[in-house]
Structure formats: structure tokens, C-alpha cells
Amino acid sequence: MPMAEGGAIAQLMAALHAVGKDNVELVPQEAYQNDADVTISVGGPSLNSASAGILRAGFPRFSIKYPEHIASYGTTTFSPEITSSGELREDYGFLACSRPRPDKYCIVVCGVWAAGTQMAVSALVAAERKSEIRKRIIGRETFFAVMHGEVRGLAQESVQTVEVRSVGA
């Protein structure tokens, strides 16, 4: 697991504990069971089979091509800038929320690169009370959100939610 994704998991766990969610079970992808009321899966489909299954079922128009590191949702492409020396300058994070059954809610946080995963987790835990993302999660809506930010070494800067789209009906 890349360091940024480990940091994203730590940030997510700290936020959940801060709001009193102490019955959180952290499991590796091999132990994933589709039986929790809410599942938050961290990491993209190439590294996390739980994320791959959730995305395939709820967001079939979304894909990330590896090793190219290019994501797409329908006709929209997300291709982060990399300098000629191979340094990642920007990334995209994705928040894919779905309701596969009336009693279950799934959230996948991932990025084109690991920095994007951390951007998506940051957007999730920082969602303000009246933000569109928070309202949709509280309402357990199916939606897809895109974050974008600059990457400076191990830091993500100027992260913004650039799109929130409803999925299905």
C-alpha cells in the first residue's frame, strides 16, 4: 500500500473515532464481507478487490487504466500532470457512494494515484454540515464526486471538489 493511502486510512479512522464511531472494524480486502451497514473501502480497483467489486456493480462507467494512470467516467477523462522528470504535480480523487441494497451503503475513496485517494478522504472527512457531499451521504444517495488538487512531494494542496454527479435514479 502506498504511504498516502496508509495516511488516508489513518485520517479516516481518526475522524470516525472523533465522532463517536468506536465500533469500526478495519479489515484487509481478503477479509471483506458484504454484510456491514456501511462499508468504506479505501484504494483503487487495481489494489483493492473490495473497491473493484463495489465500483463494478455501482459505477460501471468508471475505470482507471494502469499502468497509464488515467481514469475515466463515461466520456470524461482524468489524466494527472506528471513532469518530464516523472514528478506527480496534480491528482484526482474520487468518492463513489452507492446503495446496493436498501439496508447497505458503500463508499469507495480512491484516486488515480495514492495522493488522489488521500484527497478524496480529506474531502470526505472535511465535508461541512451543509455541503452537498455531506447531505448526499446522510441521505444515503448514490453519487460520484471528483476532487482535484496539486501534489508537492507527499503533500496535497488546493484540493477542491470539482464535480458531484448523481448516478442512477
Rank of each mutant, 00 (worst) to 15 (best):
M1G: 13
M1F: 12
M1K: 14
M3H: 12
A4L: 14
A4M: 11
E5M: 12
E5W: 03
G7H: 08
I9F: 10
Q11R: 15
Q11W: 07
A15V: 02
H17E: 13
H17P: 01
H17G: 03
A18G: 13
K21G: 03
K21W: 12
D22R: 15
D22G: 14
V24P: 11
L26T: 05
V27E: 00
V27F: 04
P28N: 10
E30Q: 15
Q33F: 13
Q33M: 11
Q33Y: 11
D35K: 15
A36H: 11
V38L: 14
V38Y: 14
T39G: 03
T39F: 03
T39D: 05
I40T: 13
I40Q: 02
V42S: 04
G43Y: 07
G43S: 05
P45G: 04
S46T: 08
L47T: 10
L47C: 06
S51T: 09
I54S: 02
R56L: 08
A57G: 02
G58F: 08
R61Q: 13
F62C: 01
F62R: 05
F62S: 02
I64Q: 08
I64R: 09
Y66T: 13
H69A: 10
I70Q: 06
G74P: 02
G74S: 02
T75W: 00
T75A: 08
T76N: 12
F78P: 01
T83Q: 11
T83I: 09
S84V: 08
G86L: 05
G86T: 02
E87I: 15
E87Y: 13
E87M: 13
E87N: 15
L88V: 11
L88I: 13
R89Q: 12
E90A: 07
G93W: 04
F94S: 00
F94E: 01
L95W: 01
S98G: 13
S98W: 04
R99V: 03
R99S: 07
P100C: 04
R101I: 00
P102F: 09
P102W: 08
Y105K: 00
V108K: 06
V109H: 06
G111F: 10
G111L: 06
V112G: 06
W113D: 00
A114S: 15
A114G: 13
A115R: 07
T117G: 15
Q118M: 10
Q118E: 04
M119A: 07
A120F: 07
V121L: 09
A126N: 15
A127D: 02
E128S: 13
R129D: 15
R129G: 02
R129Q: 11
K130F: 04
R134K: 08
R134E: 00
K135Q: 10
I137D: 00
I137P: 00
I138S: 07
G139P: 04
E141D: 12
F143D: 00
F144K: 08
A145D: 05
V146S: 01
H148V: 04
H148R: 12
H148A: 06
H148Y: 15
G149K: 05
E150Q: 10
R152L: 12
R152V: 05
L154T: 09
A155T: 11
S158C: 10
V164E: 03
R165W: 01
R165L: 13
